[in-house]
Simulated scan of single mutants.
Amino acid sequence: MTELWNWRIDGAPPVEVYPALAEALGRVVMPLAVADPARLPTYAVICDVWEAPGVFGTMVDCYGVPESLTELPCVAALARLLGRNCVLRDDTLDAGRHLLVAPDGTIRPVHFDVRETDDGEVLSNQRLCTVAHPGCRGWSRCHRSRWAPDSVFPALAAA
């Protein structure tokens, strides 16, 4: 079985993302637009990278990721290689709650305002998930997450 990963990057042009993805994943990366399933190299991962409006507007979808790869160290490696913050969905099912992965490898929960547009979701108003915020206190979904409010983890320890 293979996995699907969805990430967002803080303003990296797609032309810079593809080679960084290949290095972070340690695999051949084939852009979705040119990938021919009948001719895929062994161990290739199909990725789609495009730009959308809003913060963290560079979108990354990786299809067919081998189960042997672990997502958090891979996205941490991508953030480091690009020198940019990345975000991915967390485990709360809250559309506005994400994990922020910094270039230094730290992971922390954050919230965004999410607005649906014709071009997909637009994120804005980034804020830390903290018990100081009324929306993140004891009754919230935040406390049911592996990533509790105010938590900060190194990427490799979090994997």
Score class of each variant (00 low, 15 high):
residue 3 E to I: 08
residue 5 W to L: 05
residue 9 I to R: 01
residue 14 P to W: 01
residue 16 E to S: 11
residue 21 L to R: 05
residue 22 A to F: 09
residue 24 A to W: 05
residue 25 L to H: 00
residue 30 M to L: 12
residue 36 D to E: 07
residue 36 D to P: 07
residue 36 D to L: 07
residue 38 A to R: 13
residue 40 L to K: 04
residue 40 L to P: 05
residue 41 P to K: 02
residue 42 T to R: 12
residue 45 V to F: 01
residue 45 V to H: 01
residue 46 I to F: 01
residue 47 C to M: 09
residue 47 C to K: 09
residue 49 V to P: 01
residue 52 A to R: 15
residue 52 A to D: 14
residue 54 G to N: 09
residue 58 T to W: 15
residue 58 T to I: 12
residue 58 T to Q: 14
residue 59 M to R: 15
residue 60 V to L: 12
residue 61 D to S: 15
residue 61 D to Y: 00
residue 64 G to N: 04
residue 66 P to M: 07
residue 67 E to N: 14
residue 68 S to T: 02
residue 68 S to D: 08
residue 69 L to V: 10
residue 70 T to L: 10
residue 75 V to M: 06
residue 76 A to M: 04
residue 77 A to E: 13
residue 78 L to G: 00
residue 79 A to T: 01
residue 80 R to E: 03
residue 80 R to F: 05
residue 83 G to F: 06
residue 84 R to T: 00
residue 86 C to Q: 01
residue 86 C to M: 08
residue 90 D to I: 07
residue 92 T to E: 00
residue 93 L to T: 10
residue 93 L to R: 12
residue 93 L to K: 13
residue 93 L to D: 13
residue 94 D to T: 15
residue 95 A to S: 15
residue 97 R to S: 03
residue 98 H to F: 15
residue 98 H to M: 11
residue 101 V to Y: 04
residue 101 V to T: 08
residue 103 P to T: 06
residue 103 P to V: 08
residue 107 I to M: 04
residue 107 I to L: 04
residue 109 P to M: 00
residue 113 D to N: 12
residue 113 D to I: 10
residue 114 V to W: 10
residue 119 D to C: 13
residue 122 V to P: 10
residue 124 S to T: 10
residue 126 Q to M: 15
residue 131 V to P: 14
residue 132 A to E: 15
residue 136 C to I: 02
residue 136 C to T: 04
residue 139 W to M: 14
residue 144 R to T: 11
residue 145 S to G: 05
residue 146 R to S: 05
residue 147 W to L: 13
residue 151 S to K: 04
residue 152 V to I: 12
residue 153 F to C: 08
residue 154 P to E: 11
residue 157 A to C: 06
residue 158 A to S: 06
